[in-house]
Simulated scan of single mutants.
Amino acid sequence: MDTLHLLLTAITVIFIAATMFAAGLGTTLPTLRAILTAPLLLVLALTANLIAVPLLGWGVATLFSLPTAAFVATVLIASSPGGPFGAKLGMIQKGDVVAGAAMQVLLAAVGSLTFGPTVNAVLTAANVGGDVSLDVAALVRTVAVLQLIPFAVGLITRHYAPAMARSWHPAAVAVSNVSFLIVLAGMLLGNWRDIAALTGSRTLLAGFVLAVTAFATGALLATGTPQRRSTMGGVTAVRNVGPALAAVGLAFDDSPAVLGALAAFLLSGLAVSLPIAAVLGRHRAGDVGGCILRHASATRDSGS
């Protein structure tokens, strides 16, 4: 079991790094600069992820009268933005991958600083025990190594060697796709007992409701095209499980009940976001295909 756990952890690291590297290879500096210098988009994204979703988590946990362990898990996952699956969802839905990747890295970095105070504030206000104290420096280093550096390497390659970036991009996307499927299967197989135990419970339903409302909040609190809005929805719905897992170990003695609820919430977010992204991706691929056919038809007509 330890070997399988280590293998899944290694593949997860590959997935995160490959996804961010592929996103960087597909990004140009002017496009990235346009995203990071759009103050309204940044303010709305930070508001959605750092304020609205934690409050939604508190509200959903209260609405469903969750037991203490599930309540804590809800607050932990809702307070942790910047999940690495966010950029992948942008790719699947053929959305604004540049905006999604840039915002994911930013949210993960900022969230590593705000996670502890946010969780403490919500649990204290909700009168639920737990004092969360985390190694912020370690969280920031993790975000930098797994997300920021691969994205920056891909971005620099695209800027200084665009031909090389274009040739590497399909391979990086393929590695991201394959490792994503392995990680997803591993999550399902590794946590099936915890998830099965929650089947039919209020906890699993609360996870779906939180994911749906978080997706809607991220899409509504965004600017730009429908592609960018839906990408922001995916980034907001899929949370960063790393700080949440660290908090369970540090503040809640690796409680199996909290860990099981965390796994359920993480998979609920994917169960909501993946079908939405897949449907959007097929719809947008159809639109692109239709445009190409119409252009080809118009070209033939004009030639005749």
Results as ranks from 00 to 15, higher is better:
Ala244Asp: 00
Thr203Gly: 04
Trp58Glu: 10
Val143Phe: 10
Leu36Asn: 08
Val241Ile: 15
Met1Ile: 02
Leu36Gly: 09
Thr47Leu: 14
Ala165Trp: 07
Ala78Thr: 13
Val53Thr: 02
Arg202Glu: 02
Leu155Asn: 02
Pro243Glu: 05
Gly269Phe: 07
Leu210Ala: 02
Gly82Ala: 02
Val132Met: 11
Arg202Asp: 07
Ala165Ile: 08
Val98Arg: 00
Val212Gly: 13
Leu42Ser: 01
Arg228Pro: 10
Ala61Trp: 00
Arg202Cys: 04
Thr19Ser: 14
Ile51Tyr: 12
Gly82Pro: 00
Leu107Met: 13
Met164Arg: 15
Ile35Arg: 03
Ala251Arg: 08
Arg294Gly: 14
Ala264Leu: 09
Ala172Leu: 04
Ser297Pro: 00
Arg294Asp: 12
Thr225Glu: 15
Leu221Ser: 01
Ile149Ser: 01
Asn49Met: 07
His159Gln: 12
Val110Pro: 11
Asn49Phe: 12
Leu139Val: 09
Leu107Tyr: 11
Pro243Met: 05
Leu123Asp: 00
Ser201Thr: 13
Pro256Trp: 01
Met20Thr: 00
Leu56Ala: 03
Pro243Gly: 04
Pro81Trp: 01
Gln227Ile: 11
Ala78Ile: 08
Phe15Thr: 07
Leu220Ile: 06
Leu50Asp: 07
Met1Gln: 06
Ala171Ser: 05
Ser80Phe: 10
Ala264Phe: 06
Val105Ser: 01
Thr28Arg: 10
Thr62Tyr: 06
Ala165His: 10
Ser65Tyr: 04
Pro150Thr: 03
Thr62Pro: 02
Asn49Lys: 09
Ser167Glu: 10
Thr27Tyr: 14
Ala244Trp: 00
Ala52Gln: 01
Met1Tyr: 09
Trp192Ala: 11
Met187Phe: 15
Pro150Ile: 01
Ile156Tyr: 13
Val272His: 06
Leu188Trp: 13
Arg202Asn: 07
Gly281Met: 05
Leu4Val: 14
Val235Met: 06
Ser268Tyr: 07
Val97Gly: 00
Phe15Tyr: 12
Ala261Tyr: 06
Asp131Pro: 00
Ala271Gly: 09
Arg141Cys: 14
Val272Leu: 06
Thr27Trp: 10
Val60Glu: 00
Gly249Thr: 14
Ala247Pro: 03
Asp301Thr: 15
Ala163Met: 10
Gly24Leu: 02
Thr27Gly: 11
Leu274Glu: 14
